[in-house]
Each structure stands twice: as structure tokens, then as C-alpha cells.
């Protein structure tokens, strides 16, 4: 599981089918399984009011698309990347009415980016369900150049933009949807340790 005790990190918990007029799901990778698990306890007709947006990523080819489609949601979309799918979520939220429920499941990076879109749409963060599944790779913002590096698995990690070696801190910004990366060898440039796998 994820490292515990990070005060600024969201708390993730299993998705629960709530009462609502519309159920918006966004999932990536193994997050599909969280929706399938929820389906085992959802009331009949639940998915007739559900929209599912799914990005297979590393779980492509494991049959999640067809399993989700078999739930017969009112709308089903498979996106090529998280970035490609986010505008769709923004439009869905812009058109949403009272009683809309939001469910996010999968990697922390996807959940964080979807949260940014949802917060911008005026949704109260406490009302959004989030379940982490799959990789613990981190989405990291370089505090120096502000560039985002996706799927960071090492400590330290090289900023994909400015090239500084970053210590990935246990400090998470919901608004940016990323952990903070701070130059690891600023005191003595060139002395950064070799990266080692830290987030599987």
C-alpha cells in the first residue's frame, strides 16, 4: 500500500455506490477493478445512470474494457491517455446537475489530475470518492521550474524539464495534483546519489 502518514496526501478508500441522479466514473489501469468490485454490490439499474471513462494504460489487454462495457453503463468511453480524457470530464461536470456522484479509481496521478478538473468545476473535494489501485508511481512537480514529471518511480528523480535531480517529498498538492520535488544536491551540486526504485 501507499506510504501512510503524509498529511497533505488524499485519503483513498474503496468506492461505494451512493444514491445519485448521475454516476460519473473515471478510472485508469487497474482502477477498472474497483468499478467491477463496486458493481457486485450496486443496486439493479445503478449503471443505467452511470458514465464510465476508462484509460487502460499499463492494464491494456487484460480485458478490463469489455468487462466494464458489460456493466451496460449509459455512456462508455475508452481514452488513449489521461490528458486526452480530462476535457471530456470537464464538459461532463459543466453539464452536471445536483445529485451527480463522482468516482475516481486507479493511479494517484490520474486521480490527482481528475481532482484538479473537478475542483475547478466547483465540486467539493470531500464529496469525490477516490480509490487508489495499481502503481504507486508519483506525479511530481519540480518546485524550481514548475514542470510536471509523470510516473516517477525513483528517489531521487531527474526533472524531465530542467534536469535537476529532485528529492521527491511526501508533500502533496491537491490543486496541482502532484508531489513536490526539490533539488537534492543544491548545497553541493553534482553530489546527488544514484536514483533507486522507491515507488513501484
Amino acid at each position: 500500500m501507499l506510504v501512510e502518514g503524509i498529511k497533505s496526501r488524499p485519503i483513498y478508500s474503496p468506492l461505494v455506490a451512493r444514491t445519485g441522479t448521475l454516476h460519473l466514473f473515471m478510472a485508469d489501469g487497474e482502477g477498472a477493478q474497483a468499478i467491477l468490485d463496486l458493481a457486485t454490490t450496486a443496486s439493479p439499474g445503478f449503471f443505467e445512470r452511470a458514465h464510465i471513462c476508462y484509460i487502460p494504460r499499463a492494464a491494456a489487454g487484460r480485458g478490463f474494457e469489455s468487462a466494464l462495457q458489460a456493466l451496460n453503463p449509459a455512456a462508455f468511453y475508452v481514452g488513449p491517455t489521461v490528458a486526452a480524457a480530462l476535457p471530456r470530464l470537464a464538459v461532463e461536470l459543466a453539464n452536471a446537475h445536483m445529485g451527480t456522484q463522482i468516482y475516481l479509481a486507479g493511479t494517484e496521478g490520474m486521480i490527482g489530475q481528475a481532482m484538479v478538473v473537478a475542483l475547478a468545476a466547483g465540486v467539493d473535494q470531500a464529496s469525490i470518492q477516490r480509490e487508489h489501485r495499481g502503481s504507486e508511481a508519483r506525479r511530481v512537480q519540480c518546485v524550481h521550474c514548475k514542470g510536471i514529471t509523470e510516473d516517477v518511480t525513483t528517489q531521487p528523480a531527474k526533472c524531465a524539464h530542467c534536469g535537476l535531480m529532485l528529492l521527491v517529498r511526501d508533500h502533496y498538492s491537491r490543486r496541482i495534483g502532484a508531489f513536490q520535488g526539490v533539488c537534492v544536491d543544491a548545497e553541493m551540486p553534482g553530489t546527488a546519489p544514484d536514483p533507486e526504485e522507491a515507488f513501484r
Partner: peptide, 22 residues
Amino acid sequence: WSLDFDIGMNFMEWHGPVPLAH
């Protein structure tokens, strides 16, 4: 500390990195 990173956080969140005090 970075306002750009911490803006929008609540009291517990922005104090998250402080050791021992929690």
C-alpha cells in the same frame, strides 16, 4: 515553503512536512 504549492491546502496539510509536532 512554496505558496504556489501550498495554496488551497488546509491547516493540517500545509503543516504536513513539519517533523515531530504532529
